[in-house]
């Protein structure tokens, strides 16, 4: 290599280096712009959420000021709404008790979870471990479809299928007469609510569980099989426990959907905030109920009355508090699981 060549190649090198450093700097600039952009978006959505909280709290403040803790300890929401609606403007009704609604939300959600968790995890196991490859895809797209069906469709189907089924199979006219002074046994009930909710949240649990199970490293499965565990015991003892945090996330997401579901439940659960009585035996499940979210929908047309407006916002506060608690709870559960597994 003669000197001329050397110097050209050096200067080319230098130019290249300069170019490169410019590229690097440009790249860094782009990164920092992206990062700060994302930060601004995140911050603003956090601020929006905080504002929503504050807004709803302000809107409902009077209810909590007047009723205090009794808002969640007393019942009779439906009649109170009617009274408030017909109350003269100078004597507004401010006393509300949402215990019935709170129990309605709680019972439908817990009931739906009891059905949906085994069903959801079972289905996820069938999809990931027990079905041939061609069926996997089919089942998974079917589950995704189910998860994306709007709740009003579930509500309609439940209204036309589940409610008449309950009426025909669990309710006799003697039973109806026996309870008519307390509530109407028509099939629109806690049970119908639980049924439609469990069908609605199962796909959510399935979808997240499938992802979680698929994410379990193949080496765990091999280790287990090589230790003489059958496929089924491997699923029960190794795969599902290893997918615990993802499955839990699915369950909690499903719980969120169940608590927040308004439309389908307002169609099938009866629309009156009765408190089911365990002493009634099976009739416990046949009691018409009303949930927080459904109450907001059903009674929203009465919102022109300020006290009803505030009462419905107070129901919203209860919903928000439950959801926030749930999502914090998820974080805690997930973290403790990961810590126990040694992933953190």
């Amino acid at each position: 290599m003669d000197s001329l060549e050397l110097s050209t190649s050096l200067s080319v090198d230098k130019a290249e280096k300069k170019n490169q450093s410019i590229r690097v700097r440009l790249g860094r600039l782009r990164d920092s712009v992206c990062e700060s952009g994302i930060f601004v978006l995140t911050a603003s959505s956090a601020i929006i959420i905080v504002f929503i909280f504050i807004f709803i709290l302000i809107k409902s403040w009077n209810i909590f000021a007047v009723n205090g803790i009794n808002f969640v300890l007393k019942s009779g929401f439906d009649q109170q709404i009617i009274e408030a609606y017909h109350a003269p403007a100078d004597k507004p009704v401010w006393h509300f008790g949402a215990l019935g609604l709170l129990l309605g939300s709680g019972l439908t959600t817990v009931g739906a979870l009891l059905l949906a968790i085994p069903l959801g995890i079972g289905t996820a196991i069938v999809i990931t471990e027990l079905s041939p490859r061609w069926m996997k895809g089919l089942l998974q797209s079917f589950i995704r479809l189910l998860a994306s069906i709007p709740s009003v469709i579930y509500g309609l189907v439940a209204l036309l299928v589940v409610v008449p089924f309950i009426q025909d199979n669990f309710i006799t006219s003697e039973l109806q007469l026996q309870y008519i002074k307390q509530f109407q046994l028509t099939g629109n009930s806690l049970l119908a609510g639980i049924a439609v909710l469990s069908i609605m949240i199962t796909p959510v649990i399935v979808a997240l569980s499938v992802d979680a199970i698929n994410a379990v490293p193949h080496r765990y499965k091999e280790a287990s099989l090589a230790l003489g565990l059958s496929h089924w015991r491997t699923i029960v003892k190794v795969i599902v426990p290893s997918a615990k945090s993802g499955i839990t996330a699915g369950i909690i997401l499903g719980t969120g959907r169940a608590i927040g579901e308004a439309l389908a439940l307002s169609m099938v659960s009866g629309g009156i905030g009765n408190i089911p009585n365990p002493a009634d035996g099976g009739v416990f499940f046949l009691t018409p109920i009303l949930t927080l979210a459904s109450a907001i929908i059903n009674k929203s047309e009465s919102m022109s009355v300020p006290s009803i407006n505030a009462a419905l916002f107070a129901c919203g506060v209860l919903l928000l508090v439950t959801c926030t608690t749930l999502s914090l709870f998820t974080k805690i559960v997930e973290r403790s699981i990961r810590r126990r597994e040694g992933l953190e």
Partner: peptide, 29 residues
């Protein structure tokens, strides 16, 4: 597989405690 055990290239303990890792195959078999 109970007669012919296997140890893999990548260490593959289960995401459980050391005790549980050891106890699982005993209990299962």
């Amino acid at each position: 597989r109970r007669k012919v055990g296997m140890v893999f290239q990548q260490p593959n303990p289960f995401p459980k405690t050391i005790f549980e890792n050891m106890a699982l195959p005993v209990k299962e078999n």
